[in-house]
Amino acid sequence: MSTDTPDASVDDAPSDAADGDAPSRAELAARVEELEAQVAAATTDEGDDGKKMSIIATKGTLDMAYPPLILASTAAAFGYEVTVFHTFWGLDILHEERSTDLKLSSVGNPNMPVPNAVGALPGMDRVTTSMMEKKIADNDTATIEELIETSLEMGVEFQACQMTIELMDYDEDDFFDGVTTGVGAATAVQDMAEADIQLLV
């Protein structure tokens, strides 16, 4: 046994070496040329102005609706091809009716001007939302609708997750014109894989 095994490996070794010698200089040169071409193609792709950004929007409170829209429109201004995939409460941002009535939670955020115990009282979300809406208006900050319209005009693709549309019992017609429906997580993963910037909001 112990003598057979080394013999076998000795037999294998020369044949491996023989295979290794097989490619001729010309074949190797051709292979190098092929690889150089591939590297050049990959480099050119990156050099293209095809920068991409992929955002996943999962939140539907008034404060959390802003960041994905501001970043999407700004990235579009930078020349990025932007996709925003809206899922769960993030769908409400694209919902034509519900997007005008996004609310701010008065509990769960210690920076709120009211203590959680008070914030939990009925109607307090309405109060804090009104305060925020007034600040937005006073400060001339763009509204959610303005940001969506602007982003759409700049070519941002808004996607509404099909699974959550059905889960929330929404209709595909409930969303702003230009919103893509009939997409799922695989579409989002593909976008993220191709993107230079990926964000989950």
């Binding site: 001339d140 602007t150 700049m154």
Partner: peptide
């Protein structure tokens, strides 16, 4: 004038 982020950049680009 009067407009805030991100509108100055977005409108400049447009």
């Amino acid at each position: 004038q009067g407009e805030s982020c991100p509108m100055p950049v977005v409108k400049t680009k447009n």
